[in-house]
Amino acid sequence: MSEKTYLQAISDGLREEMRRDKRVFVLGEDVGVYGGAFKVTLGFQEEFGPWRVLDMPLSETAIMGGATGAAMMGLRPVAEMQFADFVSCAWDHLVTVAAKQRWRAGTPVPIVLRLPSGGGFSGGPFHSQNPESSFAHIPGLKCVCPATPEDAKGLITAAIEDPNPVLFFEHKHLYRRIKGEVPDERYVTPIGKARIHAEGEDVTVITWGAMVYTAEEAAKAVDASVEIVDLRTIMPWDKQAVLDSARKTSKVLVLHEDTRTGGFGGEIAATIAEEAFEDLDAPVRRLAAPDCPVPFSPVLEKAYIPQVDDVVRALKELIEY
């Protein structure tokens, strides 16, 4: 074990897979000489050469379409969108081609798409979004949202191993702020399994990504035993872990950084209502960003992204219900 940042953990996991498996290659804008906009692939081109670490033209369509073709030919592309927001330019290949090819034509498309996502640093409407729910809605795609360095490494490895297109949402706000112990050896964190970030008895917070830490801070500020479930992957998602925790505490807050309407929290809340109704002692609550684009001004952004105080307020309401 050694202490790593979240970013270093992703980088380590990716590098290790590239060393193990010649089929794995990286493509994206500025991933080579520059090492990626966030330096996740720093030093990769020196080690693996320009044909396994490809600096791409500013062409998300070519990146995603190219990754799709290469995957069909047996390679394991790890494509990077410089920011998750830019995936809109690659939508067609991801959703129209890659997601459906196995189902309709029998051709598996093993791709990892790395998506630096999330706000909290005045990135504005085009550098801060959390578009995971849009893709969780597309059958054939998997969506992974690690919160800890250990999970970041284990899940990037799992994503590369997976025979499907996997969207790897790496939260920019965690890149260098979050450090943690990461096993040095190779390991796989299973896709579709939640992690209990904190055990508790009185109320449950279901969340993922950077909001895990917001929930953690909020839990310290309330006089109750709060269970925090870090979903880790939202497609497939660990329904059992969510229902188990809901049945245990009978009060649930679903928290995410993505906007509220159509956010993945709605699916979670609906599932709890359907399958754990007789275990509920309060309505399932959602706390999410309001239904507007991500603002630039720090003041506005703070009003947009759920803050510790917001979570505390929601928890108190549930506790006192």
């Binding site: 799709t68 073709g69 290949h93």
Partner: peptide, 20 residues
Amino acid sequence: VAMVSHLPAMLPVAVGCALA
């Protein structure tokens, strides 16, 4: 490789095959 209705989408896919 099976086509999709969004016809030009197949061009980058073929390019990706060539890349492989």
